[in-house]
């Protein structure tokens, strides 16, 4: 006997993405879209075009990740001489000068987090497309992690913003934001958007749905 699970999709219902009301969903709003009767959010059984949209954003993020790491993120002028730093050379500078906690924070936020996020999203996309049956709960947890950690990558952009504001004494001492900064910010924003486009319910869709009309347990 196969165990069947009552999902909203299997019962021809839609959970509202915004207020979580379980709707029958035929209530049509303007432009013939199904909308939630309580909060007027547009209802979709699954996020539309979730997989291709997430892939597109993920690929864009991977492409932007290259200039973000190769180009300098800051240029420091002090007493007439200038020095440019990339994200990684900045981390190395912190290690050399013994500022270990900062080196660790920047390395995790700027290198580990974006990489982990892109790898996890890629793995989740492939696992959904190949209909992997196992470890659904773990994969959902991985998805939740990508949602939570992504924003912390912005820390390097904020450090640049603060340095640019404070260290501004002309040729005596000043900091300029480098060309990598907008690329890196784009990576953060695009990976956040990618993770919002991914629909974790797809992970669970491989289980056989309950027949229509059958009451959920």
């Amino acid at each position: 006997m196969t165990r069947s699970i009552a999902t909203a999709k299997g019962l021809d219902l839609v959970g509202c993405p915004s207020c979580h009301l379980l709707c029958r969903g035929q209530y049509l709003g303007p432009r013939q879209r199904r909308i939630c009767p309580r909060c007027k959010a547009v209802l979709h059984v699954r996020k539309p075009l979730s997989i291709p949209r997430t892939w597109a954003l993920l690929i864009a993020a991977v492409i932007f990740y290259i200039p973000a790491n190769v180009l300098p993120i800051t240029t420091v002028t002090s007493f007439g001489s200038t020095q440019s730093d990339t994200i990684l050379s900045g981390v190395l500078y912190f290690i050399k000068t013994g500022m270990w906690p900062i080196a660790v924070i920047i390395f995790i936020a700027s290198v580990i987090v974006p990489l982990a996020k892109m790898l996890i999203l890629g793995f989740l996309l492939i696992s959904v497309q190949r209909r992997f049956p196992g470890h659904k709960r773990d994969r959902t947890l991985l998805y939740r992690i990508t949602e939570v950690i992504g924003r912390w990558s912005m820390v390097d952009i904020y450090v640049v913003t603060i340095l640019v504001a404070l260290v501004n004494l002309g040729s005596f001492a000043s900091v300029q934001a480098g060309p990598a900064a907008p690329f890196f910010a784009a990576v953060v924003v695009i990976t956040m958007a990618a993770s919002m486009q991914f629909d974790p319910r797809l992970i669970w869709d491989v289980e056989p749905p309950v027949q229509k009309g059958e009451a959920p347990r």
């Binding site: 999902t7 959970g15 979580h20 319910r201 669970w204 869709d205 959920p216």
Partner: peptide, 11 residues
């Protein structure tokens, strides 16, 4: 009843 927003289970 509510549908889980992450796995669509009706609870």
């Amino acid at each position: 009843l509510i549908a889980c927003h992450e796995c669509d289970l009706v609870l």
